[in-house]
Amino acid sequence: MKRRRKLFLVLALVALVVSAGCSGGNQGQAPPPAGGEAAPPPHEEAKVINIGFTGPLSGGAAFYGKEVADGLDLAVEEINAQGITVNGEKYLINLVKLDDQYMPDKAATNARRLVEEYRVPAVFVPHSGGIYAIQQFNEEENLLILGYTSEPGILERGNRLTMRIPPRYTLYLETFAQMTMERFGNKLGVIPTNTQYGKDWTEAFVPVWESMGGVVVAESPIDYNKEADFYTYVSQVLAKEPDVLFVGGPSQPTAMVIKQARELGFQGGFVVMDQAKLDQMAQIIPMEDLEGAIGSVPLHLYPSPGTQPFIQRFQAKYDRMPTWEAAYNYQTLWLLAKGI
């Protein structure tokens, strides 16, 4: 029932914006290279619908941004193999990717450029800071935001052209707190990313931890996008002898925070925000470093009929296992195409 409602909402939103996206401007012709990659040439007999992406393709969160972009690229490839028909005319999807380095102000600038230069009817944005920034003007521009973030707040502003793709993170709080507290103890050290997403996750999780009898013994937010050496921050928190560390941000820097905590002798558990993926981190650091960590279930363990076929197609194209970022964004672009 929820899935049907979500599909209906997507189709309704597409109906509001796609008429503008299929006429005028740069629609009907391929744009120049964007985001470091050349756009594929359109089929001679088909027009082009540009769809935007603004996300981190460089910097500390580039690994995360690439996972999202790769899922979208796979969907574009499959959608264009079938083609889209609108009012008897054939269209192809062209994904215009711009790098915002995980910075909200750059995301907003990119979104304006995508509207003005490429007349995109929709833009994929994989971070809440960028979504909040674009929400300042997207309704005026008739721009649909397809937001990959579990931040509940993006839907609490009454913005009629915003869709949140993954589930909200508030679904995890009590389970994560209970399981780690029962196994390791009630003293929590907080080392989250200092982005808006990290601040909101922390503000939601800490009260739940404390309501269960836990205490916060140290807190040291980090710029996961800029820092490369986390020893100073981690050692300051470990000096307070926590039982559990609350960490999270993009998978690559989160993995390094966990690794450095282990190297400094920490033997407790980890509560991992849902942006960081355990299976992705296991490709970066030893599996034993992740013992005692709780986070979102890896995609390949999810019991859905479509999971394994998607994984096989993704592996055939990229020679690696996909995460939820790739899968959710892939699925959403397909929904968008069906709405068109």
Rank of each mutant, 00 (worst) to 15 (best):
R160C: 02
Q275T: 14
P253F: 09
Y318L: 03
E227N: 09
H300R: 13
A12P: 00
G88W: 12
G213E: 08
R160P: 15
D223M: 03
G147R: 02
N26T: 01
A122M: 10
I311F: 13
P298S: 04
L16N: 08
D289N: 14
T170M: 08
G88K: 08
G158D: 08
G339Q: 07
Y328C: 09
Q252W: 10
L16E: 11
P242V: 01
M212G: 06
L92Y: 06
P152I: 06
G71V: 05
Q135P: 02
G25P: 11
G248I: 10
D200S: 13
L11I: 04
E78Q: 12
V76I: 04
G28Q: 10
G213C: 10
Y302N: 04
V76R: 09
E156G: 03
K226R: 12
R113H: 05
K259S: 15
I145D: 00
G292L: 11
Y118H: 06
A282D: 11
A177V: 13
F314N: 05
K6Q: 11
G36R: 02
R3Q: 13
A177S: 14
V217H: 08
E37T: 15
A337C: 01
K97N: 06
P309C: 07
A177H: 05
T307N: 13
A39T: 09
V76P: 03
V17I: 10
P41H: 04
L143C: 04
S304W: 14
P221V: 08
G55P: 01
F205T: 01
R157F: 10
L57V: 11
Y224D: 04
T232G: 09
S296Y: 11
I145K: 00
L74K: 05
A293W: 12
P42T: 04
W324V: 02
G129P: 07
K47L: 15
V271I: 15
F246D: 03
G214S: 12
R119W: 00
E78F: 06
P322Q: 08
G306E: 15
V123N: 00
M181Y: 04
A20W: 07
